[in-house]
């Protein structure tokens, strides 16, 4: 199927979510705003894991770098929304560059553990310097920061639109990236690194590029989360927030542009529904991880791609 169809599909989703702003009831409206921000995180993760085959267990450090880079500038220096966001994004980009330079010397299982360890070190560091970060409690983003172009971001409607804007930009960027030759080299590295090297592609530099793009988008999501929902806390840099994007991407379909959103949407509602019933809502996440690896390794969109629409990006 030609490019026209999948551009139609992806732009259609963006239009649908825009329409959602006007028709969704208040509670769902808030949920979808949150899901769109988290889907940005998942899309960032997917560039490393889904397209390049870099299975990181430590992406929460990038999400956390964005959140704290943004939050601390706002909390301690009363920065405006845009400089604070920029600080978060730059923090994530720098961190992913440094982590990439080190961690990408390893591969496979070692890479998973190294990223997990780096992420743990950051999470513990955030707790350790409690004078600056307020430790485990975290802190509320001052309302002075939460204004953008005259909009009050604690207002539900503004929040949804900003989330929608970010989501749309990242979705279109991903769609462009994976069809660009860089994205195609990412896939080549995922499929067969040695072959790609012998076609003249520098595996280390390409993977580093993928990880920095992935980390930067994750940081963007973390910064936006703090900005829109007004809180930064160490939990967001913990292991659980490294597992979540893996779960969303696996559920939706690794290496598909729509997969991260679909996965985040389903998992959010699954956990939302079950947390009404029990405190042990993470049980759902555990069961989902096991069932997905066993029975649906391609994920939902991946399955569509495999059966119906082979060249879906």
């Amino acid at each position: 199927m030609s490019a026209r169809y999948y551009w139609g599909l992806h732009l259609g989703l963006i239009a649908l979510l825009f329409a959602g702003h006007f028709v969704l009831p208040a509670y769902q409206h808030g949920n979808v705003a949150r899901i769109m921000v988290l889907a940005v995180y998942a899309m960032g993760y997917n560039i490393a894991f889904g397209y390049t085959g870099l299975l990181s267990l430590g992406h929460a450090m990038f999400f956390g770098a964005g959140m704290y880079g943004m939050g601390l500038l706002s909390y301690h220096f009363d920065a405006g929304a845009l400089p604070a966001m920029a600080a978060g994004i730059v923090a994530g980009a720098m961190l992913s560059l440094v982590v990439g330079l080190l961690a990408l010397r390893t591969a496979g299982v070692s890479f998973m553990i190294v990223t997990l360890m780096f992420s743990q070190a950051l999470a513990m560091t955030l707790v350790y310097f409690r004078d600056i970060t307020r430790g485990d409690e975290g802190f509320v983003i001052p309302s002075a920061t939460r204004r953008l172009w005259g909009m009050d971001l604690s207002d539900e409607a503004h929040r949804y639109l900003i989330a929608w804007g970010l989501f749309s930009i990242v979705l279109i960027f991903t769609l462009w990236l994976v069809r660009h030759r860089w994205g195609r080299v990412f896939v080549a590295l995922r499929e067969n690194e040695e072959r790609a090297s012998l076609l003249g592609y520098d595996a280390f530099r390409t993977k580093l590029g993928a990880l920095v793009i992935s980390g930067t988008i994750s940081a963007l999501s973390g910064a936006a989360y703090a900005l829109l929902f007004g809180y930064a806390g160490a939990t967001f840099a913990g292991v659980q927030y490294s597992i979540f994007p893996l779960l969303w991407v696996l559920l939706g379909g690794a290496g598909t542009v729509l997969g991260p959103f679909v996965g985040a949407l389903f998992m959010f509602y699954l956990i939302d529904l079950s947390s009404g019933v029990t405190d042990a809502y993470m049980l759902i996440a555990g069961v989902a991880l096991v069932l997905l690896t066993l029975f649906l390794p391609q994920g939902l969109v991946g399955e569509v791609k495999r059966r119906l629409w082979r060249d879906l990006p």
Partner: peptide
């Protein structure tokens, strides 16, 4: 050692792309 999950076109395109951009 071809890219087993990619099409023939994509395999050869990866070879040509580095030179042709």
């Amino acid at each position: 050692s071809v890219f087993g999950k990619l099409t023939c076109h994509e395999n050869v395109a990866l070879a040509a792309m580095r030179r042709l951009g």
